[in-house]
Structure formats: structure tokens, C-alpha cells
């Protein structure tokens, strides 16, 4: 049984089809990235999974259960929406105590102390949340979402609106929690760099359909071309080295980009031959590296350069 199962999910609003036959699954314990441009239907998918919206077709299961029907099953699920779900007039500890009561935690004091320490808000435990910065609220929101030790936690844009330092703190917190609490993390995010760093599997949603669904490693490997970046010890030799490289039968392209040469090979298997040929031709190589494509490039390829899925 997967942690999350989505099969043939479709949903329209006012005659406009937002989700069309969406299918994917998330394994237990993994950090899953759900990507897509604004309005692609990511939040709609999460709302359907959480039982807040009903699908027109298809089925969704979280831990094998339909959350639309099962009130009790929601106790195994945590959620962080963009608003954090906190009351500004209550203190950090009171906010957590309230949710502990809703989720039926018997004696939550130790757990609240543990989480406030984990999100580095121990010294602000009695301060009203309204006095917190956006980053502090987000960290407290994450603590609230995992307070009841859910098996699956849905995080909707957890880094949205945060400065780079706070983004990093939230990112580290998610990875730490996934390991420490052994929970499945379903991450809705626009931050592709963040997703590439922490997610094991991603699905890219655009135009209402899943455009790609695989592990980050496989997605990058599948779309990877054997493109080599070469730095010579003698920069003046670049033009000659470029001519030498393009003459090789397995080099389809070579460009002098000023500081480096960028050569595209026909097959990754010939990389050792390529390096050996340059050395044999008398060039002294300072650096040779294989250029990897980023998740951002793969994402843009799937959703279009505009990034809006059009």
C-alpha cells in the first residue's frame, strides 16, 4: 500500500477542466515534490486528497483511506497550508495545545516542548503569534502540522514568502523531520532548487495532466545529454582544441564559450575516449566535467518556457 494513491483524477470548475486523468503515487517515507505552474491544479489535488473537495472522476487514497469519508483517518495526516493555521492572538504554545486537543493527544506538554525546541521557538513560546516574523510563523506552522505525529504530511509552498536564510532553515527542517519522524512528505512547491535538493520523487503537473512522474535522479538522467565542459591549462589553445574535438566521430558539437569549451558527445560511453583523445593531441586539461541538467531545465521543458503550462 502506498502512502498516497491517485488514480484517474479529474476535476472541473465552472466548465474549466483543472485536472485531467491525473495518476501518481507516493511511497512511504519519501519526500515527494508536486510541481506545476500557478493554477495548474496542485492545490486542488491536495484539497481532494484531504477530502476538502470531491473529484468529478477518479479516486484518491491516503494511507489506503478516502479522507472524504473517514473523519478518524485524518488523524494520521498533517497539513500546512499557506496561512499556517495559527491564531495570531494566541501564544505559540497555546496554538499547539489547541491542535493537540483537536487531535486527541493526552498529555501534549512534552511534545509541545520538543517541537518548540526543534523549530527554535522555545524562548518565544508564550508570545502571541501575531508578533512573529513570517519565517517564525512558518516554522511554528510546520510544528503544528506534525504535532500529532502524522504518517503523511502535506506541505503547501512551505518556503513561500521567506528570505533565503529562512528557506534553508525550513528545508533542513523538512529533511530532518522526514528522517526523525519517519513520515511521508508531500511537498507542493515552486522552488525547484529546493525540490531538487530534498525530494526523491517528483510529479510535474501542467495543463491539467501529469507531464512527468519519476525519481529526480531518473528524470535528470533520462533527459541528460553527454555534454562536457572542458577548461584548458593554456587558454590560447581553445580554438585548436575545438577543431580537434569536432573532428572526432563521436562529438556532435563543440563551442568555444570564452572561458571553457562545451562539447556535446553522441554517447555517454565515449567520455573516456574523448578525454584520452584531447590528452593525446597534446592539450593540458585543467578541468573536465560532465554538465548535468537541473530540475528547473527539465521542468521548463515540460511546462513551456513561460512556466505557465501554456
Amino acid at each position: 500500500m502506498n502512502a498516497v494513491d491517485v488514480r484517474g483524477l479529474s476535476r472541473s470548475f465552472d466548465g474549466r477542466e483543472i485536472l485531467r486523468d491525473v495518476t501518481f503515487s507516493v511511497d512511504h517515507g519519501e519526500i515527494f515534490g508536486y510541481l506545476g505552474p500557478n493554477g495548474a491544479g496542485k492545490t486542488t489535488t491536495v484539497r481532494i486528497l484531504l477530502g476538502l473537495l470531491t473529484p468529478d472522476a477518479g479516486e484518491c487514497r491516503v494511507l489506503g483511506q478516502d479522507l472524504t469519508l473517514e473523519d478518524g483517518a485524518r488523524a494520521k495526516v498533517g497539513v500546512l497550508f499557506e496561512n499556517n493555521g495559527l491564531a495570531d492572538r494566541l501564544s505559540a504554545a497555546d496554538n499547539l495545545a489547541y491542535y493537540a486537543g483537536l487531535y486527541g493527544l493526552d498529555d501534549p506538554r512534552d511534545r509541545i516542548d520538543e517541537l518548540l525546541a526543534l523549530v527554535d521557538l522555545e524562548d518565544r513560546r508564550n508570545d502571541p503569534v501575531g508578533t512573529f516574523s513570517t519565517g517564525m510563523k512558518r516554522r511554528l506552522g510546520i510544528a503544528r502540522a506534525i504535532l500529532h505525529r502524522p504518517e503523511v504530511v502535506f506541505l503547501d509552498e512551505p518556503s513561500s514568502g521567506l528570505d533565503p536564510g529562512a528557506q534553508r532553515m525550513v528545508r533542513d527542517l523538512i529533511v530532518d523531520l522526514s528522517r526523525r519522524e519517519d513520515m511521508t512528505v508531500f511537498l507542493n512547491s515552486h522552488h525547484l532548487d529546493e525540490v531538487q535538493r530534498i525530494c526523491s520523487t517528483v510529479a510535474i503537473l501542467a495543463g491539467g495532466r501529469i507531464q512527468a512522474f519519476d525519481s529526480v535522479r531518473n528524470l535528470i538522467a533520462a533527459s541528460d545529454r553527454p555534454e562536457m565542459t572542458v577548461v584548458l591549462a593554456e587558454p590560447g589553445e581553445r580554438a585548436r582544441a575545438c577543431e580537434t574535438a569536432i573532428a572526432l566521430p563521436y562529438v556532435s558539437d563543440c563551442e568555444d564559450e570564452g572561458e571553457v569549451l562545451r562539447c556535446t558527445l553522441t554517447d555517454p560511453g565515449v567520455i573516456p575516449d574523448f578525454i584520452a583523445a584531447l590528452v593525446a593531441a597534446g592539450f593540458r586539461l585543467l578541468e573536465v566535467r560532465r554538465s548535468s541538467r537541473s530540475l528547473e531545465e527539465i521542468y521548463l521543458e515540460h511546462v513551456g518556457q513561460s512556466g505557465d503550462g501554456a
Binding site: L52, D71, A75, V79, F81, E82, N83, G85, Y99, L102
Partner: peptide
Amino acid sequence: RDGTIETLLCAPVS
């Protein structure tokens, strides 16, 4: 107005 109700609706409470 502030969207907190959405989080409450996800709690195991009718």
C-alpha cells in the same frame, strides 16, 4: 477570511 478554517477542516473533527 484568513484561511485558518481550511486547516481546521483537515482535523479529525466533524
